[in-house]
Design a protein around this nucleic acid. Sequence first.
DNA 1: GCCAACGTTGGC
DNA 2: GCCAACGTTGGC
Length: 151
Amino acid sequence: MQYWLMKTEPDECSIDDFAATPDQVIRWDGVRNYQARNFMRDMAIGDEVFIYHSSCAKIGIAGIVRVTRTAYSDPTQFNPESAYFDKRSKPDNPRWDAVDLKFMRKFARILTLDELKNVAELADSPLIQKGNRLSVIPFSKVERDSVLVKV
DNA sequence: GCCAACGTTGGC
DNA sequence: GCCAACGTTGGC
């Protein structure tokens, strides 16, 4: 079992979108950063993922989802209609991957970025480092547990 | 809306 | 393979 955090703008996809369809998977596509993609390729079925709301009024961790399908070719990269279209990606050698996720839990409140900055166990996480734009971040069990006790 | 930080691109 | 220019992320 591994632990992760994924950033999302809640206007695009929020913990409420997962909670609204708890029996359905949501495809996490549109990741266009190699480091983030490589982390997605390390995900296993059952891994827990913190959902982090960014670029919004209430920034922070909103809940947990679970990986239900490991990395596969992200279909949006081949769709010219998609905002995530990548004309340089070839079907016989796709650049970008998606995973499928399913709702686990919505926190009673958002764990705000300000709070997370004060969690000693997260001091070394890219999550709270200024200027870090990594959208898929691995969490150790210690880091994950340090978040859960705050809920 | 601003802008610092950072990743990617492409000319050389 | 260097690096300037550019585009994007994301907190504020």
